[in-house]
Design a protein around this nucleic acid. Structure first.
Lengths: 342, 342
DNA sequence: CTGAAAGCGCTAACAG
DNA sequence: CTGTTAGCGCTTTCAG
């Protein structure tokens, strides 16, 4: 556990050159340095197992090569993929990420932003609860001196140089369209709470898809509840018991879809044999549980990846003092995953 | 996006004291500083929204307040809880964590360790693939100058100041014992590959529990395959078709348990009504899918939490140059979760 | 082609 | 009680 590590100073002494020369060589800024000294220095550095001290460098360059990732909770299955996407892009560009779990708690978020600022991160990727007032968001990101990219959020705040969103309306529209193309006409929709924009967009996409085909939808086909397996079961039971004829069910998320499929198995005789089921594959990998399920896969990994890309681009531009201040917006599509019944 | 932030120098000038005074006050090392100057400095610091520059401090103190977390893949449902545990403890102690996904790739691991060392992390918490030779592990952690805590691994390597493990043997033993206490006597065991110590320990626990009760087990009761839902289904079918009488099944992980329960539903008439099913709740939260399932919940969160605790303890001791070099080992128990049928 | 020198922002003795 | 003085390890003009 030796703390002692070689410095460029020691290398310089050993190589009998100045520390400036060593620094330049080690940073590949050796335009005008002779091959001989160059090799000599490099050899010594390797021998002594030189490890640059990032702190010292950062003190001068004002860049740490670290970006902060602020999310509600990595334990929520929605986030690991995002985190992975961010990390992958970051490490491609030789950035590290510091991860912060806020539990959707404003105070914690503020505190983390503060810490990240002290730690001199070069930028921040942040997602926060969809149920949050705009003023709060502003307060949170206020006073933070680094570029920010939002994931799954669409506020306009100074410092926010980018946003990555998914088009839920379109995804929902296409999912329903897929069912329609398959010949289904009576498509029920089971969703969780409608108090997030995501949920409302999905519902609108469903309605729009039907309207486009001139199919009027019936309010009785729409069941609003919770994003839980149990609600998938209950809502499906309701549909059956209410004697509403349906030949397909579209589920607002994968938990609901899992529940719905469970329930349908019990009603094999009461519903069409080839009933169409579709769900959003948000979090629980419904497909692992119900391999026959067709889903709209949310591009979580991609969201993280593009967010990091946007951020790093912004960081670099800024360090070049380019002052092009339009915030970029990337809207990603969900992907229809059709599986064969097993 | 102002990069300019106030320094203690400016505060010192404004308060008409020396920078040393300001530094001491801001670090609560103001044993002998008058209340008046103290308040004056604090007031100015607040007014100017002073943010300490961690880089500059770290350069001197050789402490960054950052811990590296090296894991195979945050996307693997085994790790988010661990990561959360590490982060929670870390943030309690005002440490941040940098997360690295190695994909069980030695080269990547080496590279990350290198980067973390450059970034001057104060310590590292690492988990790596169970299928790995000891020599490799040594090579990886070699040359790394900071304290290390291993999660779910038990190698003895310099720098490793702690290990956090779960007692799989005991967990398995207790799970089977639970079934025995319930009156089950013919307990089958479906496991994945036996080439990890975890899997072997679990199998041994199963055998030991039976032996303790003087129950001889039959090799036909043990099905070795993969940790997948499909294997749970197939193995269960096998058991039924082979006409081996069993009144309970113990599953090596939750995917297998999910598969097994699926299969059993199809054989309702061929197996005892009150068949006992038990599984390890490692990764997929089997309980969400099959709420009636009794499981041994792996203490992932706790592993992370204790690992961070051990590491931080070690970091502090080291900074105090205490040279007590025994590596601590924490062995955690899984927790039996009995659920009511829904 | 290379070296000297001036810091980055902060801490930590050591004087007064 | 507070100020002076050295650096931490590195980058970066600017002279030679």
């Amino acid at each position: 556990m030796l703390k002692k590590s070689v410095t460029i100073k020691e290398i310089a002494k050993e190589a009998q050159v100045s520390i400036a020369t060593v620094s330049m060589i080690l940073n590949n800024k050796d335009k005008n340095i002779s091959e001989s000294t160059r090799n000599k220095v490099l050899k010594i550095a390797k021998e002594k197992n030189y490890i640059p001290n990032t702190m010292a460098r950062s003190l001068i360059t004002k860049q740490t090569g670290i970006i902060g990732l602020v999310i509600p909770d990595i334990t929520n299955p929605f986030f690991p993929e995002i985190a992975r996407g961010v990390e992958d892009k970051a490490s491609e560009e030789r950035y590290s990420i510091i991860i912060c779990n806020t539990d959707d708690n404003l105070q914690k978020e503020d505190q983390y932003i503060q810490i990240l600022t002290e730690k001199m991160v070069d930028g921040i990727v942040i997602t926060h609860s969809a149920d949050r007032y705009q003023e709060d968001s502003i307060r949170i990101l206020d006073g933070c001196r680094v570029p920010i990219v939002l994931i799954d959020r669409d506020y306009s705040i100074p410092n926010v140089i980018g946003k990555v969103l998914v088009d839920n309306f379109k995804a929902s529209y296409e999912a329903v369209n897929y069912l329609l193309n398959k010949g289904y006409r009576k498509i029920a929709y089971i969703t969780g709470s409608l108090n997030t924009k995501t949920a409302r967009d999905r519902l609108e996409g469903y309605k729009e898809a039907l309207l486009t085909r001139g199919i009027s939808y019936d309010e009785r086909y729409i069941k609003v509840g919770e994003y839980k397996i149990q609600w998938g079961i209950d809502a499906t039971k309701k549909l059956v018991s209410e004697d509403v004829f349906f030949d397909a069910i579209f589920c607002g998320n994968d938990l609901i879809a899992i529940g719905s499929m469970k329930a349908l198995k019990k009603f094999r005789l009461k519903v069409p044999q080839d009933i169409g089921i579709m769900g959003f594959d948000d979090i629980y990998m419904a497909s692992v549980i119900e391999p026959a399920l067709t889903t709209m896969k949310q591009p979580n990994y991609e969201m993280g990846y593009y967010a990091a890309e946007l951020l790093i681009e912004g960081i670099k531009k800024e360090s070049l003092s380019i002052n092009e201040k339009n915030t970029k917006k990337i809207i990603l599509d969900s992907k229809l995953i059709v599986r064969e019944s097993s």
